[in-house]
Amino acid sequence: MDRASRRGLSPRLWLAGGWLLLALLAAIFAPLVAPQDPLAQDLMLERLPPLWLDGAEPGYWLGTDSLGRDLLSRLIFGGRIAFIVAFAAAIAACLVGSTLGLIAGYFGGWADRIISRIVDIWMAFPPVLFAILLVAVLGTGLSSVILAIAIIDWTRFCRVIRAEAMGQSRMDYVENARIAGYGRIGIMLREVLPNVVPSIVALLSLEMGIAVIVEAILSFVNLSISTDDPTWGGIIAEGRLSIHQAWWVLVFPLITLILTVLSFSQFGEALKARFDPVLR
């Protein structure tokens, strides 16, 4: 198959990557791009509908909530927390999980038995309950949300990377490297790791999406960030209360959330295909 055309024509990669880039840039430059102050309440402007409906006000693109705050601006600012949590939690979970998975899968033996046992115990907890419990223990706040997600989800990386590393360790090129005098750790980093990188990348992106959801769930049950800063989950929780008067306060954050989560997983898959030397 022609490589160039494959690289050029991956609509999945472009759509998903495009949305993520747009949302990320908006979040980074939120003070510049948000049309309104996300915290400014104005009872005169409460429950304004989106711009294309009757009764809308210019400047309030997606309408306002029951306190008169601009929905679009709140979504843009909410993206900041979503992305910080996504990146920090996913990277932390990835570092811990991939390292342990690589060690368990490649070294096998007692290292594998211990690590696999811990993973089994971990997986016995329902994740959302686990998260709520952890945040209750760690206290609310950005860093404990990040920590909670990393603590729960490293097992996802560990399981997948362990299985892949185990398959790799049986390959003849690993044996060849041993004959050539390479040490165990050298082989793990040189021969095994490059072959699991595509999976790590895909999982990392997927995990970012999951972190966004978990953060939203925690905000939804009011366990996330205890400041007034808007979060997607928090906005959804508010929107749920006024669904009959102002459906847009629920619908737009839901769409934003779903698009972001889907984009992360699709982006990860597309990246994996691109990193994979055999598919490339």
């Binding site: 390959m171 003849d172 090129y173 060849n176 021969e191 490059p194 072959n195 990188v197 030397p277 055999v278």
Partner: peptide, 8 residues
Amino acid sequence: LTALNPSR
């Protein structure tokens, strides 16, 4: 095939 590392 399996004697060569596919990603190198």
